[in-house]
């Protein structure tokens, strides 16, 4: 393998890492900040992908589809928080696991009833449907690069929102001491509803813009769920920065793992997780 190909693999790894960040950002928010173990995160990802597919085939345009779908998922998130999750904040984590596992089954069944069990594809938007030639026989799809750009923007926006805005301050305060924040006259319930809805919308958004790259299939959510938890755990609970670092690490490890040690590619991510947890049990950027 010459230098050019090593550089291309580096690009592959970073690009895949950014994709992982996008997919896990919603979970970082909900698990990291609200402390909810949300196993249904993958289901929201799937819902987003199916929404993108069905709306894009109706409107003929992915951008329009995303514009319509995001408000829908925000409403879905708010409704779920108000009806279900709100009851569980004071309970043990096990209740959350049970509820969100149940939600996986419910969403999977609803998906089957509404959209069926077929594999679907979403066309890459015409504007981005091109490839940049890198070597004599390899090109890089523009859409992948565009997604990387979106991921970076999203990461920046999340960081600014949580670290630099008043709302972010309230969210962080709520995460460390819910009762105190409430007694200071801040409507913590509303904030939690907003954060949860944002988490759902982020997961769904990831499914939407990822739909043209990965096909839209049943059970697609369960495949991303595990890797999302790995990202959050490695990165450190509650840290957007950590999630970004972890995503890039995993992206690079998987890419080079597949090429250099193909026989162990399946476990390399988990080895990485084990090593990080031994070294820093709270994760890379986690609070002690």
């Amino acid at each position: 393998m010459d230098l050019a190909f090593i550089l291309i693999q580096l690009l592959n790894g970073l690009q895949y890492g950014l994709l992982l960040f996008l997919v896990s950002s919603g979970l970082t928010l909900v698990f990291g900040i609200m402390g909810i173990i949300n196993l249904a995160h993958g289901s929201f990802y799937m819902v987003g992908a199916y929404l993108a597919w069905s709306l894009a085939s109706m409107t003929g345009n992915l951008a329009t589809a995303i514009a319509i779908a995001i408000p829908l998922t925000v409403v879905l998130g708010m409704a779920l928080e108000k009806l279900l999750f709100r009851q569980l904040y004071t309970r043990d984590h096990l209740y959350q696991v049970l509820l969100t596992y149940g939600l996986i089954l419910v969403f999977e069944e609803l998906r089957s009833i509404i959209w069926g069990d077929d594999v679907h594809g979403v066309a890459v938007p015409a504007l981005l449907n091109a490839s940049i030639p890198l070597t004599e026989n390899l090109s890089y799809p523009v859409y992948r690069l565009a997604i990387s750009g979106v991921c970076l923007l999203l990461a920046l926006a999340l960081y600014l929102l949580i670290q630099k805005t008043r709302l972010g301050m309230m969210i962080r305060a709520g995460a460390s001491n819910r009762d105190m924040v409430q007694s200071l006259g801040i409507d913590i319930k509303l904030i939690y509803t907003l954060v949860f809805a944002m988490g759902v919308a982020l997961a769904a958004f990831a499914g939407m813009i990822n739909a043209p790259l990965s096909s839209v299939t049943p059970n697609m959510g369960s495949h991303v769920l595990i890797i999302c938890f790995v990202v959050v755990v490695i990165g450190g609970i509650g840290s957007v920065k950590g999630a970004m670092a972890a995503s890039l690490m995993i992206g690079l490890a998987e890419t080079f793992g597949q090429v250099l040690v193909p026989d162990f590619a399946g476990m390399i991510v988990y080895v990485l997780m084990a090593v990080v947890l031994v070294w820093r049990p709270e994760g890379l950027f986690g609070r002690k």
Partner: peptide, 18 residues
């Protein structure tokens, strides 16, 4: 090989091109 049922093929496609 890529682990089942992973669907991220970019690294292996680069390998094929090389």
């Amino acid at each position: 090989y890529t682990p089942f049922p992973q669907v991220e093929f970019q690294a292996l496609l680069t390998e094929i091109a090389s």
